[in-house]
Amino acid sequence: MSSVLYDAPGPKAIARSRVLSIIGIILIAAGLVWLILVLGAPTVSANGAVQPGLWSVTRWDVFSDVQVWRTLGQGALNTLRMAGVAAVFALALAVLFSFGRASETRWIRVPTTIVLEFVRGMPVLLMMLFILLVFSTGSFWAGVAALSVYNGAIIGEALRAGIKSLPRGQREAGLAIGLTPIATRFRIEFPQAFRQMLPIIIAQLVVLLKDTSLSFVVAYDELLRSGVYNLSNFFGNRYSFSFFFVVLAMYLTINLSLSWLARVIARRSRSRGH
């Protein structure tokens, strides 16, 4: 591995870093084992009642109930549904925003810029509450609207940067062969900018998927609310850690596979590239 900080290591340095590495592995493993043991130990609460450790069977036996899995699956579906709908709207808005922002008419460009700055500087959660209370849309559409506007603004900026980074000749050539400015933008500049910015757009869509969990706060039954909050209210707090653990695993599976997909697409579009 070549790095800015180090020369390629010689035999002595390799041996030394191997020893350090083994010590590191032992330290990390010891830390993990300690954590597992501490979590697994039975605890005594303030009133003297003894609670079983977190790995005890009595905390995990709910998972033999089919209804639990059905609820978890429904939660995951709700999360994915919100993410899917919001992604479509976000992309549409992004196109609008990027055109407005790069427009040659001042009366379109300046208001779009102000709206974009406002939207990008504001928490998504506040926007969700805002839409829920002002337009009383219900929690699903409040979540979808806030996520599409926010992510649309960010993807729109990425698209604009993509359009701006194209060689000037592209636009000039389009105009020179008699296309209207709008047609030039749509048929010449936009497809190139989109392809160039595809990795960033997909990464932002992963962020959108993660942010659907914010709709927990406006009481939408997504994975976190239905899988951890509702289930542990129903079956008792004893199981809340187990439910959390499973929901975390589900989130990580979905997000890590999407991130992996994003990386594959990024690599492919780069190798096909320019």
Binding site: D211, L214, F216, L224, F244, L248, L252
Partner: peptide, 15 residues
């Protein structure tokens, strides 16, 4: 990075 913030704060506030 792949865990939603809401999950992290839920863990901190409830668990």
């Amino acid at each position: 990075r792949n865990t939603p913030l809401t999950l992290v704060l839920f863990f901190c506030a409830y668990l």
